[in-house]
Design a binder for these strands. Structure first.
Lengths: 255, 255
DNA sequence: GCCGCAACTTGACATTTATCAAGTTCCCGT
DNA sequence: ACGGGAACTTGATAAATGTCAAGTTGCGGC
């Protein structure tokens, strides 16, 4: 499927293409095409060689990994996000699998083209470095979240992050099925249920996908959200402003 | 302290300076200086603003993070390794603290200089991107290691990695105190002791810092090392060859 | 050599998380 | 509206890990 103007525009507006000049944009996107995938499609398995950079324009994608019959979810992506950028830069194999969670639209950019664009234009290359650095820091946050917090604390912080992102009102809607959320937070669905009931003390009430907060203060006292782990404070930290925070969300945040 | 020729050479030979031309090297290293630190010196605390790229030339450094009176070790670095590169690229605050474990020699490169070098020379910028991508993949491996394996499995794989790195003989010497190793593997020292005794079934015997293997096959059956998690297979994956694997080790691997 | 402290080990116990087994609810298609 | 299956919840139990409290070992400094 050829790239329509509207798609090209969406790509230009986010991600590291934002400030590229036209010539570099054309180089880096040479041979790119748009593809639609149904839900639950495996785009990539661990160990596959990676020929394309993926840019999620619509839908959502789960990044995961497995070992010895265990599986874990590393991130859930929403538009607009790039993924497997690191493998593309290194011409290496994928360390994570990628599966669509819903019907998705994905722009596939040949790795060769991207690398050529990077090597020909230093400013564009720097923008890619910024993207990579943002991805790296997202992973650091994720590791800290898992090693320093127990499951209830992770859930509490997830809820506060969602609340901030959904406008700060006292009711939010969970963006995923609870079993998906459980995998993202690194626990079993049973444990997630129990974590929710532990939070009823803290004014959290659940009705299906709707979660209401009656006392955010006491929830925050348990959750102790930190700008060094959680993402919702990350804005205005540098001159990249919103563009940067959007990207970080995309790549690793637990949306 | 000014940079001696020998130091400059060591930096050039590793890391992303390897293929830079002289002009770019000078730009990127402008204002850099070498500093020695005693053991247990805090180089950087979480949340500090980052003005320099650090390059460890001698000694070792622990990267860690804390929250709510808990602390965790994210990596232990050995020469030659760069650290906090991502924060430098983004002109952002540190997400990890850095503390010397022994007397260390560290080259400090002004962030401005590095960024200028990247923006002026696309090839150098690409090399930095490769470094960042390697760091990213190191973190992915680390997360997989922690989420997919229990503590005994992590220890078993750590031992096999060390064995490979120390020449494949049937006896190795642990490069760190056991309490440091425990922190690195994400467990308490007590738990590490117990994990070692569980491995005596598998032919592992411990005497101080010396660990001997009497049956590697059965240990491997438990550990199930994987090139998608562990590092010792990573060579010859791409044209970067040894340079790349060295860097990856440096940044995240559990040496 | 020996003293003393820190590292390490071991045991008993608490906490956290996973697993297994029902049940209940919800959603979707007929 | 109804039926069926997946999602979710709840309880009982097991496994993994952390905590606390002894001890023991080992190593560096005097």
């Amino acid at each position: 499927m050829p790239i329509k103007n509207t798609d090209a525009e969406r790509v230009r507006n986010v991600s590291f293409f934002r400030n590229a000049d036209d010539a570099t944009f054309d180089t880096a996107m040479n041979g790119a095409f748009l593809q639609r995938f149904p839900a639950n499609t495996t785009l990539l398995m661990e160990g596959d060689s990676v020929d394309f950079l993926y840019i999620l324009l619509e839908g959502s994608v789960e990044l995961g990994a497995g070992w010895k019959s265990k599986d874990t979810t590393l991130a859930i992506l929403r538009p607009v996000s790039t993924f497997i950028l690191a493998a593309v830069v290194l011409e290496s194999d994928a360390l994570m699998s990628a599966v669509t969670l819903e019907r998705s639209e994905i722009l596939m950019v040949p790795g060769d083209s991207l690398r050529r664009g990077m090597k020909e234009n230093a400013v564009f290359g720097f923008a890619v470095s910024e993207e990579l650095a943002g991805c790296y820091r997202g992973l650091v946050r994720s590791i800290k979240n898992h090693k320093l917090r127990d499951s209830t604390e992770r859930l509490a912080n997830y809820l506060l992050t969602q609340r901030a992102r959904q406008g700060g009102k006292d009711e939010i809607v969970l963006p995923h099925e609870k079993r998906v959320l459980a995998a993202l937070l690194g626990m079993t669905p049973e444990n997630l249920s129990r974590a929710f009931s532990k939070l009823s003390d803290k004014g959290v009430s659940v009705d299906g996908a709707r979660v209401a907060f009656s006392n955010v203060t006491v929830l925050e006292r348990l959750a102790r959200p930190s700008p060094l782990i959680d993402n919702h404070y990350a804005q205005d930290r540098n001159t990249l402003g919103k563009a940067y925070t959007e990207r970080q969300q995309g790549v690793l945040d637990q949306s």
